[in-house]
Amino acid sequence: MSLKSYSRARSVHVMLVYTGGCNGCDIEIVNCIFSPKYDAEQYKIFLTWNPREADVLVVTGPVTKHNEQPLREIYKAIPEPKAVIAAGACALMGGVYKNINGDIPSEEIMGPVDKIIPVDAKVPGCAVRPEDVLAGAVAALPKLLNAK
């Protein structure tokens, strides 16, 4: 393993962007960073709120209208190499909001996430479990490590 990939594997900065789901996934992801039980920092995963610092973008929620443009901007602000994890059923396929097929469909959902930005790892669940989020971060790692 070269020094480049070694250092990338030993320090992963994760940024969380929350695009209008139900808060559930969001809390679980914050939980897996802050709760001493999961403690993502022991796996060298750090939470940051600054796109310039981030390597991995975790996106939750079905991407509502007002969140589409900010999401693009934040994705653009992250320097290469970068990976995107879509977490939760809403981020993967629009969730109940897009697929429940009521009389009137919702016009507000612009998602799922991979319509807007390229997604590298998908974490299913409603809401995602903290363990799965950590596993998803690991699944996105090869892209970071093998990047130029």
Partner: peptide
Amino acid sequence: IGPPISTPGIMAPLK
């Protein structure tokens, strides 16, 4: 447990 002591000071700048 927290991060390994090499991570914030050495590995992060290297990355």
